[in-house]
Design a protein around this nucleic acid. Structure first.
Length: 403
RNA sequence: GUGGGAUUAGCUCAGUUGGUUAGAGCAUUGGUUUGUGGUGCCGAGGGUCACGGGUUCGAGCCCCGCAUCCCACCCCA
């Protein structure tokens, strides 16, 4: 027997119901915010991710499905969605066109990681990207959109907020932090030693207790923001407060992808295990230029659909459509024909075998039909069909034309 | 990539110190004396005990390997 590859799931039955329910709810809300759908390829040139996500990140450094195709191109399955959207944005010359462009997307992403709960090798994200708006109000609007989507789905969350600073303030801070951590060397764990070189801000997030003690006096980025970044961060907090969105400032919050600057946020859930980030995003004003486009401010977020599916509170399934059954063999051909006609407008389940009325009613319940319609010898003789409303339990006999 | 746990029917799980024919609930399916259900009653089907080796007279149970899932690290959505 051939099984699916490790970390790659089939989505069907109840899972599929949840999956599509999420997509339709998120799509509806993204459209209310003025976003339009974009579909980009699953396969892209590897260089796209090396330049955008960054080679120092784990995602690009060790988790990509990368290979050389038959045309000798170095390609990989996309590990995230933003890079492809930005590439499309530039390729279609929308950066030159100017103005505001807002997109949403959803689809499969691929990362070669060790699977665990909430972490798959092929997983699905829903994301949005907004180009051309440098106002922090757009950042706030992203957060409001995530909040609206989660609310629509009945999902509780905690919102964590941080500012990563910009080109003016971040590099100085980074140097200061690296200098501080280097003084602690000897006392810190192996991971932190490595992080100093790869992604120094991550040391602040270390789960090792003894490292944390050493970092108590570490410089905080939030205190080193330039006036622009500081003002924007304060404005953002005020907008969220005005709109009744609770947040906590987490000065250790870092996005794992290199392209983020200024606003960074993450929505976490306490109910799905250690892989608890259900949505994350932020501003990436430098990325378009970095990928050879004309400098364009941008902000976006992505949500992990599989992680959210566990948390979605599904609406109650309503009884719908018809079940049509035959009490006598002679009626079978009749119900097939009736069902064929009825299916022009309604969901219709039929049984090809005769049953007694009791079993037909049972079967109608099983498929969650609203009406159970049955034809037996009485109905054949009079050219009628017996119909029972399974919800209010009323029943009537109508002519076939009326049905 | 590192460490730990699990794997028995479609699903959730029992299975005694290694001993005849591996069980339950739910689900499926049939019937329930002549046309009223979702919640009665009776029956039936369904298992190479994940896979591959080993120990033993004998393995679902013990040992080794392997795969997958789960948990933590790591990373992130």
């Amino acid at each position: 027997m051939i099984n699916s590859l490790r970390g790659m799931n089939d989505i069907l039955s109840d899972d599929y119901e949840r999956f599509t329910y999420f997509i339709s709810a998120a799509t509806k809300i993204a459209q209310r915010y003025g976003f339009h759908f974009i579909e980009t390829p699953l396969l892209e040139e590897t260089a796209l991710f090396k330049r955008s996500v960054g080679e120092s990140s784990d995602i690009v450094g060790k988790e990509m499905y990368q290979f050389i195709d038959k045309g000798e191109n170095d390609v990989c399955l996309r590990p995230e969605g933003t890079a492809g959207v930005v590439r499309a944005f530039i390729q279609k010359k929308l950066d030159r066109a100017g103005g505001i462009h807002r997109f949403f997307y959803h689809g499969a992403m691929f990362r070669y990681e060790r699977p665990q709960k909430g972490r798959l090798r092929q997983f699905h994200q829903f994301g949005v990207e907004s180009f051309g708006v440098d106002s922090v109000y757009e950042d706030a609007s992203m957060i409001m959109m995530v909040s609206d989507i989660l609310k629509e789905l009945g999902i509780g969350y905690r919102l964590q907020l941080n500012s990563l600073g910009c080109n003016d303030c971040m590099p100085n801070y980074r140097e200061e932090l690296v200098a501080f951590v280097r003084k602690c060397e000897g006392g810190i764990c192996e991971d932190c030693v490595r992080r100093v070189d790869t992604n120094p801000i991550r040391v602040l997030d270390c789960k090792n207790g003894s490292c944390q003690e050493l970092y108590i006096g570490a410089p905080k980025l939030i205190n080193h923001l330039c006036s622009d970044c500081g003002n924007d961060f304060n404005t953002l907090k005020k907008i969220l407060e005005d709109n009744n969105i609770e947040y906590e400032v987490n000065t250790n919050l870092v996005r794992g992808l290199d392209y983020y600057s200024k606003t960074a946020f993450e929505f976490v859930s306490d109910n799905i295990g250690s892989q608890n980030a259900i949505a994350g995003g932020g501003r990436y004003d430098r990325l378009v230029e970095f990928l050879d486009g004309r400098a364009t401010p941008a902000v976006g977020f992505a949500m992990g659909i599989e992680r959210l599916m566990e948390l979605i509170v599904m609406p109650e399934v309503k009884k719908d459509g018809y079940y049509i059954g035959a009490l006598d063999d002679e009626a079978i051909d009749m119900i097939v024909k009736i069902a064929h006609n009825k299916r022009k407008t309604d969901v219709v389940a039929i049984d090809y075998k005769t049953k007694n009325l009791k079993n037909h009613l049972k079967a109608a319940d099983k498929v969650n039909a609203k009406y159970c319609a049955v034809i037996g010898s009485n109905e054949i003789a009079s050219g009628t069909i017996w119909v029972k409303n399974l919800k209010d339990k009323t029943e009537k006999t109508v002519t076939l034309e009326e049905f």
